[in-house]
Design a protein around this nucleic acid. Structure first.
Lengths: 229, 229
DNA sequence: CCCGCAGTTCGATGCACGTCGAATCGTCCT
DNA sequence: AGGACGATTCGACGTGCATCGAACTGCGGG
């Protein structure tokens, strides 16, 4: 009773600032970032970064964790990531300005983290390979694992039953903004990305959402899925 | 190549204005609205309404159709509706100001259109009834029709196979902002709402997103699903 | 104990943009 | 054709808000 409706203008105005949008875009990588880190990547002073982070905190879009005396900011939850994704889907493409911006954009295009799962061309290759080898099917806006797919995940060391039991979406499709194709998200996508890191097949770049494929990862992906890059 | 990433700040800033947000919230009802209509509900002059509609048009968030000489604005597509939904999910609740605002909010709480499907308490009742009678199951963030559910839809006169063939999501769950429960969306939810209107079970209010249950609708819903309101 | 680093607060500045009224344009109806 | 209505454009006004530098706080280490 007496709740009133959601004030979408407030959140949207919050995201609508270029600097805050860059913060969120950066935090969409899923890892925690420090305030000065965000300030430098966004190209603003520390005071403005602090100001914006304060507002994002107050609106519960980000949260701060004190990790070893150092405080790091991260997205407040998956709903925030989902909202940013859906905004990306209806947002206009902005043309790249500088050359170095183009090179970093290229790295992100190849492979990056999208909150908790892989995105970019690598993610598309994964979906394609898993589909052609009969591990994965795509029907009506979401993926589904086949019997072979389930055993493939088990062989990789992923507990499929635990993923099924999770309240979150099992194998949802996340529409990319660079590629126009859906890639694997949800519990399955997150588990896959996490396992790839544990196995040392991929590595997160230092201060970026970008992801690099390790030599062993290249070999293993070619061996298990026939992916050649 | 050379695309650059999506400019979420631009879209978010667009939605971030109170007046434009009200426009979009109003258009979320799914029906076309005229410019002056939107102006009056938002409480601004026609000139400002025209100004804002021009910006929304340029950003491809809304589209205008000339229908019998009259031009009416509507959301540009389901992606826009999805984005607004996801924003509502992370938006703070704003407290109601006036008493008449509270009464209209109450009407919306009871039953309303959410772009192309039903939302509000009525939608929740529907999901509950269909679940308890074994027509519908909810697993991992999306619904699924049982065998009985499929035949129930067929009896209602809905072509299930056509819905399956559609590229859109079949029976996705849309998380409401008033109730905290998911309701039926996607192709199934849209078909259900449309059929209810055709059958005269529900009626759209004149200039609102609100929906009223007709006497026959009340009887039929009680007969077929055991819903009593 | 004091220096340096990280982060926040404060006051001032300046730009961007939402708002309105009046004027203009286009279309439909009589 | 003329009148009425709806809608858009334009210029001007006001205000909200992002930005910065400088000062302040808190903390860890030499």
């Amino acid at each position: 009773m007496m709740v009133g409706d959601a004030d979408i203008a407030a959140v949207a105005a919050l995201i609508g600032d270029r600097t805050r949008a860059r913060f969120l875009h950066e935090l969409l990588g899923g890892e925690g970032r420090r305030a000065s880190e965000l300030a430098s990547t966004a190209g603003v002073s520390r005071s403005t970064a602090s100001f914006h982070l304060g507002r994002l905190l107050a609106a519960n879009l980000v949260e701060v964790r004190v990790h070893g005396g150092r405080r790091s900011y991260r997205l407040a939850g998956p709903e925030v990531a989902r909202a940013i994704e859906s905004l990306q889907r209806i947002a206009p493409r902005q043309t790249v300005r500088s050359l170095r911006a183009a090179s970093t954009a290229h790295a992100l295009d190849c492979a990056r983290f999208c909150y908790d799962h892989l995105a970019g061309r690598l993610a598309i290759e994964l979906v394609d390979a898993m589909t052609t080898t009969g591990l994965l099917t795509f029907t009506n806006d979401h993926f589904e694992l086949t019997e072979q797919g389930i055993s493939w995940f088990r062989d990789l060391g992923i507990d499929i039953d635990a993923l099924r039991a999770a309240r979150r979406s099992f194998a949802r499709a996340c529409l990319d903004w660079s590629e126009r194709r859906p890639h694997l998200a949800g519990a399955t996508g997150a588990a896959l990305a996490g396992r790839f890191i544990e196995l040392g097949w991929i590595e997160r770049a230092a201060h970026s959402r970008a992801v690099t494929l390790t030599p062993t990862g290249r070999i293993q992906l070619h061996r298990t899925l026939g992916i050649k890059i």
